[in-house]
Amino acid sequence: MSILEVDNLSVSFKQYTSGLRQHTQEVISNLSMELVSGEILAVVGASGSGKSLLAHAILGILPSNAQTSGKIRFDGEVLTTKLQEQLRGKEIALVPQSVSFLDPLMRVGAQVRTSVRKGKAKEAQKKVFERYHLKEEVENMYPFQLSGGMARRILVSTAMVSGARVIIADEPTPGLDSVVIKEALTNFREFADQGCAVMLISHDIESALQVADKVAVFYGGTVLEIAPAENFEGNGDRLQHHYSKALWRALPQNDFTCEFKN
């Protein structure tokens, strides 16, 4: 069942070039996709191709000089700015790219408790900490006292206790070692298995493929194709688009070629 539908979305930025001359640059064009409950959709593509902007458009946190057209529907209802504000952090949660998104002056236990919506906050927080193997003393720590892996588990805990039905994870893995990556990805798989819809934005195709059901290949501000994860195999002959094939073949464990020049 589809929870979130993006229908023909375009995002453009208005910039001043020289003096009062304005220039409109389209960064996402005519993009359509959907998030289905119980599934992980990985969004892969070049850095700077607009993947994060898609996440920001869904959450309604684009900068003020951005203009959007097209529709985003949540549960069949068109998302307006007001509705986005109501759903943000409640029905739709973001697991941000960087651990610097934690409040540096607030104990992490308290930060997790602020996102609990149903039942007792304290209990929910204790339960989720136990589940992610965070010791009891961690709840009284400040973000600077945590290791990178622990901080990441706090961010995931926050999304977990909110009971959100759509989770958007923006580049959750770069620069981490394989053990921590595996742990982060397993968390997202669990979210999906509980009936959430997960959008996993990453340029690390290899690790995204370990957990994703479908993969959307992003290029130049739009989705070229949405392929089942198992189509990424061998020479990439089961992929439709030239760019998707090139991206797959460019991996060091495949051909390590760069035939696609942009």
């Binding site: 892969v44 593509g45 070049a46 850095s47 770069p174 620069g175 340029h203 195709i205 090139a246 991206l247 797959w248 460019a250 991996l251 060091p252 390590f256 070629t257 760069c258 696609f260 020049k261």
Partner: peptide, 13 residues
Amino acid sequence: TMLDAITQAQIWH
């Protein structure tokens, strides 16, 4: 690490 696979391959070559 922060780059997509095609850019990575191009730079390393």
